[in-house]
């Protein structure tokens, strides 16, 4: 035999080796898919058999309690409305008064003054660039004759966000300091965030009547979770060694909270508030369905009359307002973190 025949060249040898090594690997990955494949196939076959045999019990669930549950929930909402009617009326009245005054104030401020205020705030809190951009945005709002509805929306937002912070930050602090509170409120927060926001409108109307207060109620429920979650997260993320140092100097729990934990969590808490503002703005159109004024009602009215151009402009006004608020608050967070 000649030498070249006897010797396998190096690349050939590699191919042979890799083929030998590959087959067990392929077998292994086949095994990995084997089990789910059998399960899915089994499920399809069994479903076909049930449909073929017409076995009623397996086709329609034998018990239906939806009517009873809906009835019970209706009754309990009614009970709450009747029992605590005066209480909710009182809340409703005071929110109405505050909101009305705030709205009147914002509309009363002449537009040059308002624009200058926003410019100064944007400049001091964020940057000159953001200040200029904010003023450009507000000029557009004024040009399309949506200045007044914008101010109404801002007033509703301020009240809703204020209530969210007043409720959300303390609850977040409690959740951060106690694991059981955290575990307890987590499903509540999940519900609040995933529940379609329309669902809040009905109890809102029943408790507070049609109008801005029901809108604020629905907005707060919708916008509260990020505030709670990020306050909780921010405080839990505070460097434990700094908390330990604080403890070593004899800080009480309250001193730890107000001198170390909350100040160090401020950037994260601010991010939560920023999220709350954005979500509250997103709710403004939906809230208009229960009688909230502002940009939302402009969108709804235009849509109802099939004037799509007007609807798009009003919708864009909400976006511009959102961007102005977001950029200024983000700028504040960034400056604070540096």
């Amino acid at each position: 035999m000649s030498a070249p025949d006897r010797e396998i060249s190096a690349p050939d040898r590699e191919i042979i080796n890799s083929e030998k090594g590959a087959s067990p690997r392929i077998n292994q990955s086949l095994k990995k898919f084997y089990f789910p494949f059998v399960v899915i196939l089994g499920a399809i076959v069994l479903s076909l058999m049930i449909h073929g045999s017409g076995f009623e019990l397996a086709l329609d669930f034998p018990v239906d309690v939806s009517n009873e549950m809906e009835g019970a929930l209706d009754d309990s909402v009614d009970w709450i409305v009747i029992t605590f009617g005066d209480f909710f009326d009182a809340i409703s009245d005071s929110i109405k008064v505050v909101l009305g005054k705030l709205r009147d104030l914002l509309i009363w401020i002449p537009w040059p003054i308002m624009m200058s205020l926003v410019f100064i705030i944007g400049w001091k809190v964020a940057s000159l660039k953001i200040a200029i951009m904010s003023v450009v945005g507000m000029t557009i709002l004024a040009l399309v004759n949506l200045w007044e509805p914008t101010m109404v929306t801002v007033a509703i937002m301020i009240v809703a966000v204020f209530l969210s912070i007043v409720i959300g930050v303390p609850v977040g602090v409690l959740a951060a300091r106690s694991d059981s509170v955290d575990t307890g409120i987590r499903p509540v927060l999940d519900t609040m965030q995933t529940m379609p926001s329309f669902v809040y409108l009905v109890p809102g109307i029943m408790l507070f009547g049609l109008g801005n207060v029901a809108a604020i109620f629905a907005t707060v429920l919708y916008a509260l979770p990020p505030c709670i979650r990020l306050t909780n997260l921010g405080i839990r993320q505070v460097d434990p060694s700094v908390v330990e140092a604080g403890t070593s100097f004899g800080s009480s729990n309250m001193q730890l909270l107000f001198k170390i934990q909350i100040p160090m969590a401020i950037p994260t808490i601010m991010a939560g508030i920023n999220q709350t503002v954005m979500m509250a703005l997103a709710m403004s159109t939906i809230a208009a369905m229960v009688g909230a004024g502002g940009l939302g009602i402009e969108v709804l009215r235009a849509m109802g009359q099939l004037r799509e151009g007007e609807a798009i402009i009003a919708g864009c006004a909400i976006v511009i307002l959102a961007i102005i608020i977001d950029r200024i608050s983000q700028g504040y967070i960034e400056n604070r973190t540096q």
């Binding site: 140092a245 604080g246 403890t247 070593s248 004899g250 009480s252 160090m264």
Partner: peptide
């Protein structure tokens, strides 16, 4: 707390200073 405030104080490896 009183004991920690007056009798002992501690210096830490990673300083434990308040960044804010």
């Amino acid at each position: 707390r009183e004991f920690r405030r007056s009798k002992v104080s501690m210096v830490f490896q990673n300083f434990g200073l308040l960044p804010h």
